[in-house]
């Protein structure tokens, strides 16, 4: 084997070892907070509230609204709920805390980008939240008879791929907001703005089909529908293959855009950073 190849293998092995350690560490950490995670999960109930409002509206309208009947509303909002649950991120809040309290200093001394700590916190949290979500989805499909949550394996696989990218949009977007804490004391307020926009534009409130065309055209140019609306459409199998491809590419583009923005902001911010008392 050539020496370079050996170094490369060593690097890979090293990365694998680091990842395993980080995973074990943060997974253990997250299991401690299982009760809180369960409550956070239950509190993200907006898509389910909207599900019942829209079903109520459809039945008042004689059963259907723009090709949506009770079963397809149920399927859409259940899928939207799952998408929202799997893309939850709180990294902006955590970065703000670490920067204001000076906790970032000890992180900077470690031989690894502090970003990875946050990635693993969120990643392992999903493994604690996952079983709860699964129980709710299975229960949900029984509660509303005839829910058309797709049984197609392909749609589930596409969804699993796209939901990871969707999570990365939300995560990296919050990372950008988090780096603003280098300049502003209360940068989490920006996160609240994003949260409000997301509540009404991501798709947990209504399928985009019901938005006025002019507004929908604008919303399509924002990252929000790629976090909840499109993943939910893919999971319910209501997108054509060519649309699915387009959605995946645009989602990937948003991930890249926010990734690049984050690294630029981080580079400038870290120069600005002086720990408390420095």
């Amino acid at each position: 084997m050539k020496p370079e190849a050996r170094i490369e293998l060593g690097l890979l092995e090293n990365m694998w070892r680091k990842s395993r350690t980080m995973f074990a560490l943060w997974f253990a950490h997250m299991t401690v907070y299982r009760a809180e995670i369960f409550i956070w999960m239950l509190s993200g109930v907006v898509p389910l509230i909207m599900m019942s409002v829209w079903i109520g509206k459809a039945s008042a309208n004689g059963g259907t609204l723009e090709k949506f009947d009770a079963a397809s509303f149920a399927a859409y909002f259940l899928a939207a709920w799952v998408s929202q649950q799997l893309t939850v991120a709180w990294v902006a809040w955590e970065m703000n805390f670490q920067i204001r309290q000076g906790e970032l200093s000890s992180r900077l001394l470690r031989p690894i980008d502090p970003l990875w700590e946050h990635v693993f916190r969120h990643f392992t949290e999903r493994f604690v939240r996952g079983p709860f979500i699964l129980v709710f989805v299975i229960a949900g499909t029984f509660v509303v008879p005839g829910t058309k949550l797709t049984p197609d394996v392909w749609h589930v696989l596409e969804f699993l791929l796209v939901i990871h990218l969707a999570f990365l949009i939300r995560f990296l977007m919050q990372c950008c907001v988090g780096t603003l804490s280098f300049w502003f004391e209360n940068a989490t307020a920006f996160d609240e703005f994003l949260y409000v926009l997301q509540t009404f534009l991501a798709g947990g409130f209504a399928p985009l089909e019901f938005y006025p065309p002019a507004i929908r055209a604008v919303v399509e140019w924002t990252p929000f529908p790629y976090m909840v609306y499109y993943p939910a459409k893919i999971l319910t199998g209501t997108l054509t293959p060519s649309e699915t491809w387009r959605v995946m590419l645009i989602t990937l583009a948003w991930v890249l855009a926010f990734g690049i923005l984050r690294s630029i902001l981080w580079r400038f911010g870290i120069k600005k950073y002086g720990a408390v008392g420095a």
Binding site: A35, V46, V53
Partner: peptide, 20 residues
């Protein structure tokens, strides 16, 4: 339940139904 500090979020989440 000392550990569960976010329990009011639960009410907050469901209270949103009150906007309709």
């Amino acid at each position: 339940w000392v550990g569960v500090e976010n329990i009011t979020e639960l009410f907050w989440g469901f209270f949103r139904a009150g906007q309709f």
